[in-house]
Design a protein around this nucleic acid. Structure first.
Length: 690
DNA sequence: GGTTATTATTTTTTT
DNA sequence: AATAATAACC
């Protein structure tokens, strides 16, 4: 028997409401995950619902991993194993692997990431009009938006989204088609296609839709405010036979509109699922009252939101603080100094985080921490597989997996240098076109096209085919090792970076880490290890997945595992986006200034800064006890110093007494005595350093 | 075909 | 300031 006594009244209501549509509006820190876990446990243990008929969908691997771990802790491993807890993307990849042939596509597709997309787009734009300088990223984001709305490449021109006056729309029209044709020819799909094609499968094959809907009788969606229209369609198919859907979310934490999330999905849940129950979780167990008061005041300004006010029992007389700093370096130094002080007084650094709007703010903070010898960890930012070496290796693997993948082929055809340059490549591209054959097949069948370089081509083709045999015969780890050796990749790194020797070690390290990752994958997946699964996992990895050198999971059943990604004695650094779902005793909110939060691009784009406000709200509500915000009077941007001002989000509250402002460029935050002492120390250390 | 110099561009957030 | 794309050179 699972006892629900540990839940509060609202949480318990939510856990007990099993049938029909349910919307749980869960404010920040209101025990959302706990409620979901108990709800599932209650269903399985008390009501005897088979775990295998329950599906829990989240957005990040980290979220589903956490859910699984907490399920294990509560009910033991066996039950957890039968539950399906996964991300939207991994769920859809499973659907595609099973049934993609039902919409006339091949099964061994590869997944294109952003850089693959960009490389196709470059060619698309060249074809469209060699002269004009269109921005590839703008075109991509237009295409993605269309895909998220479910508009195909041939439907765009006639849709209401097409503006004949806008030259970008004409470019997009052309490129969208070119892009889709190419992807299909290469047998590749992009992130949006993962969802889009899965929905298409379900749409065209009602029996398949029914199959999945029957298999998953109870469906839960986490972070529902982040779903896009396409994901909404998917949910509709999955619930078509039973309507047992429970969604959990917080409209105030919707921060992914830029990738198509539609806050309307959560706001209109009642209308879309008839007879829905709505339960609000408003008690916050995380933050102290002063922190919550400020956060509430900030978010209150937003117009479109469900009415909901968080409250807490945690009293405190520590008001949030806003520090005015001189410039970027000053900001980093002062914060680092403060953290050093905390460390001295015995604070464990896993309880401390620095949050900021964009990744570009990371380097100066990092420098300051390093100079003060404070251990830190950057979460998110550049993904492991975004590094050049890893992309190269993955391209080899993708090509081996799917020889139609021309983007991968072009990336590595001359890496390491093997004397196959632009001219030769172009010859093969022409031939490939005239024969209507994939680029790789052309190289395989007509090496003589390269003239005197024919043997170079042949030996490249040979490398690929030898290795694809290797992957069938050896273990994953061995086969990757053999590949690296055969192409002599480590030597290539040495040569390539011979003028920046400092980098060599690190880049080689990336290669070793890659091998490590393969080993870990192999140990974890056992007989399900395959190259396909491995590459897929790498590409669907999210920014909070552990790609560190370390012992992350410890494997033993953890006794009450700690919250947060980082339990080591390290400060966590991350963007506001990646901080969602986490909490820390002390939060430094860096750069709460105009053009940063709200961001310049959003201000320029027109009026809707509500998402920026939510971002600010998310950041503030990460803090349990202490919230320290900073802004600079001057910031270095694009290598130039620019004057800056405190964010409008705080400016409008400056007389509210909800926070204190201290000017750290003077000694205004100190009493006279302290200021004297500080100055003495400062000069003393200055003299020391001379 | 490969290397180096110059120029352009970037920086919002990410599955 | 750092990096990538392009052009010009060897």
């Amino acid at each position: 028997m699972i006892m629900l006594d540990e839940l509060n009244a609202q949480q318990r209501l939510a856990a007990k409401k099993i049938d029909g549509p349910l919307l749980i509006l869960a404010g920040a820190g209101s025990g959302k995950t706990k409620t979901i876990i108990y709800r599932m446990a209650h269903m399985i243990r008390n009501l005897g619902i088979p775990a295998s008929s329950i599906l829990g969908v989240s957005f990040t691997n980290k979220a589903s991993k956490e859910m699984r771990e907490r399920m294990h802790a509560l009910m033991g491993r066996r039950v957890g194993r039968d539950l399906t807890l996964c991300t939207f993307h991994s769920l859809c990849v499973q659907i595609l692997r099973q049934d993609i042939d039902s919409i006339g596509r091949r099964k061994n597709f590869t997944i294109f990431d952003t850089s693959d997309q960009l490389s196709v787009l470059r060619r698309a734009l060249k074809h469209f009009n060699a002269g004009k300088g269109f921005d590839r990223k703008t075109v991509i984001s237009k295409i993605e938006k269309l895909k998220n709305l479910g508009i195909g490449e041939n439907e765009f021109a006639d849709s209401i989204y097409f503006d004949p006056e806008d030259p970008y729309d004409h470019a997009t029209e052309y490129c969208y088609r070119y892009y889709q044709e190419n992807l299909e020819f290469y047998n590749a799909i992009d992130f949006n296609d993962i969802i889009l094609l899965a929905v298409q499968i379900l749409k065209k094959n009602p029996q398949i839709a029914t199959k999945y809907s029957k298999r998953f009788q109870y469906i839960m969606i986490d972070e529902y405010q982040d779903t896009n229209p396409l994901q909404f369609q998917l949910v509709q198919f999955l619930t078509s036979t039973h309507n047992n859907i429970c969604v959990v979310g917080d409209d105030d934490q919707s921060i992914y509109a830029f990738r198509g999330a539609d806050i309307g999905n959560i706001l209109s849940f009642e209308r879309q699922f008839k007879g829905a129950t709505i339960i609000k979780l408003e008690q916050n167990y995380r933050s102290t009252a002063p922190i919550l008061n400020l956060a509430n005041a900030v978010i209150k300004e937003n117009k479109k939101r469900t009415s909901k006010t968080l409250w807490t029992q945690k009293k405190s007389n520590k008001l949030p603080i806003l520090w005015a700093m001189g410039d970027t370096e000053h900001e980093a130094d002062v914060v680092a100094e403060e953290i050093a002080k905390m460390q001295m007084s015995g604070v464990h650094l896993s309880n401390v985080a620095m949050l900021y709007r964009s990744n570009t703010q990371t380097p100066p903070l990092e420098d300051a921490l390093r100079l003060s010898s404070i251990p830190y960890k950057i979460i998110g930012g550049q993904k492991f597989y975004d590094k050049k070496e890893i992309k190269d290796l993955i391209s080899y693997l993708s090509l081996i997996l799917n020889p139609r993948n021309e983007v991968a082929l072009r990336r590595i055809i001359n890496v390491p240098n093997r004397g196959i340059g632009k001219t030769t490549l172009n010859k093969f591209l022409d031939k490939s076109k005239s024969e209507g054959m994939t680029l790789f097949k052309t190289m395989q069948n007509f090496p003589q096209v390269a003239g005197s370089r024919a043997n170079l081509i042949s030996s490249f083709v040979e490398i690929i085919s030898v290795n694809s045999k290797n992957f069938k015969m050896m273990s994953l780890r061995e086969a990757i090792g053999a590949l690296i050796e055969q192409i002599d990749y480590l030597k290539y790194i040495e040569k390539e970076y011979s003028d920046t020797p400092k980098q060599i070690e690190g880049r080689k390290g990336d290669v070793y880490n890659f091998l490590e990752a393969a080993t870990r994958f192999q140990n974890y997946m056992k007989e399900e290890t395959s190259l396909k699964n491995f590459v897929e996992k790498l590409l669907l990895q999210d920014s909070q997945d552990s790609n560190d050198d370390g012992d992350d999971d410890g494997a033993g059943d953890g006794a009450g595992d700690g919250e947060g990604v980082n339990s080591k004695n390290e400060v966590s650094l991350m963007t506001l986006h990646s901080s969602k779902g986490l909490e820390f005793n002390t939060v430094f909110l860096i750069g709460v200034e105009e053009e940063s939060l709200p961001h310049k691009r959003t201000i320029e784009q027109g009026e809707d800064i509500s998402e920026e406000r939510r971002l600010c709200y998310v950041g503030m509500t990460r803090a349990r006890e202490e919230l320290i915000m900073t802004y600079c009077k001057e910031r270095t941007m694009y290598g130039k110093k620019v004057p800056r001002h405190r964010s409008r989000f705080l400016h409008s509250l400056k007389d509210s007494k909800l926070f204190v402002e201290q000017d750290r460029t003077t000694f205004g935050h100190l009493s006279e005595e302290e200021a004297e002492e500080y100055k003495d120390n400062f000069f003393a250390s200055l003299i020391d350093s001379l």
